[in-house]
Each structure stands twice: as C-alpha cells, then as structure tokens.
Design a protein around this nucleic acid. Structure first.
Length: 157
DNA sequence: GCCAACGTTGGC
DNA sequence: GCCAACGTTGGC
C-alpha cells in the first residue's frame, strides 16, 4: 500500500464536502497535469491519501481519505459544460483520468503548511520544496508516519 | 491581488 | 527540438 497527498481548494471541494457525498465517496476529477495524472495511475485500491486544502486561509493537511477505485477515464474532460473540459481529449483517446476517494478521517485541526515546513524530518517532502505546484504527490511511509504522530503539534520549531 | 515558479503551446 | 509567450498554481 502506498501513501499520497491530494490538494483541493476548499472553496471548490473541501473535506467537509467529501463527508456530505453519498458513501462519503467522490471521483477526484479535474486533474489536468500529466505528472499528477501519472501518480493517479499508480494508485491502487486501499492506498491512503492526505486531503490538503490549498489556496485558502489556513493551507495544510486536514484529514485522510482512501482510494476506493483505481484510475479510470475522467469524463469531465469530455463534457463541454464542465469547467474541466479539454478539447484535446476524446472518447477514443481520453487524456485524463480520475480515481474515487472515500473519506476516512478529519483531523481535529489543520496541520498547516507552515508547521510541515518547520519540521526537518520533512525536508524531503515534495510538498514543502520550492516552487512545487503538483496537486497530487507521493508521501513516503516515513513521512506519513511522522505527520500522523499525534504530537506533531509540539514539534514546531 | 500580486507574483514567483512552473507547465504548456505553438511558431520556427 | 528550441524557446518565447502565455496560462496556471498557490503561497502570501
């Protein structure tokens, strides 16, 4: 099993929105970046992912979700009325994919980007590296375990 | 809203 | 295949 981090702007789709979904499950649509897409293709059922809120007041990790369906065609790329429509994609040659994610837990508080950056243990974490814009990225076992430690809040330097 | 950093596009 | 122009991301 592998670990991931997936970003979403909470004003578009937040962890609370995921909780409201039927079965607390939702297709992770709209990824339009090849690197991020390729990571989605590597995902397997049962993989876990941090839910990250980006582009908002308190950016950071807000909870955990589970991959419950491996990569399949993202139909929103083929839907002219979708904000994620991509004219370069087609039924014959679909360019984009999505996975289904299911809510697992919401943290009592946000683990902020600031404190993730403050921990030397996470200096290799892609998220905290300069200029990183990837909306989906892998998390190592070590990084996952570290972030999930209940006392991370006391490790701010 | 600004802007640095990065990705994509398209002319050549 | 290069690279300038443009678009997007996302922290601040």
């Amino acid at each position: 099993m592998r670990f991931w981090l997936m970003k979403s702007e909470p004003n578009v789709f937040s962890i609370d929105d995921l909780v409201q979904c039927p079965n607390q499950t939702e297709p992770w649509e709209g990824v339009r970046n090849y690197q991020a897409r390729n990571f989605m293709r590597e995902m397997e059922c049962g993989d876990l992912a941090f839910f990250y809120h980006s582009n908002c007041k308190e950016t950071g990790i807000v909870g955990v979700m589970k991959i419950v369906k491996a990569a399949y065609v993202d139909d929103s790329a083929l839907d002219e009325n979708s904000p994620y429509f991509d004219s370069k994609s087609s039924v014959e040659k679909p360019r984009w994919c999505c996975v289904d994610v299911q809510f697992v837990e919401k943290f009592k508080r946000t683990i902020t980007l600031h404190e993730l950056k403050a921990n030397i243990e996470l200096s290799d974490f892609q998220l905290v590296q300069r200029g990183n814009r990837l909306s989906i990225l892998p998390v190592t076992d070590t990084q996952w375990a570290f972030i999930k430690k209940p006392d991370i809040s006391f490790q701010i330097s």
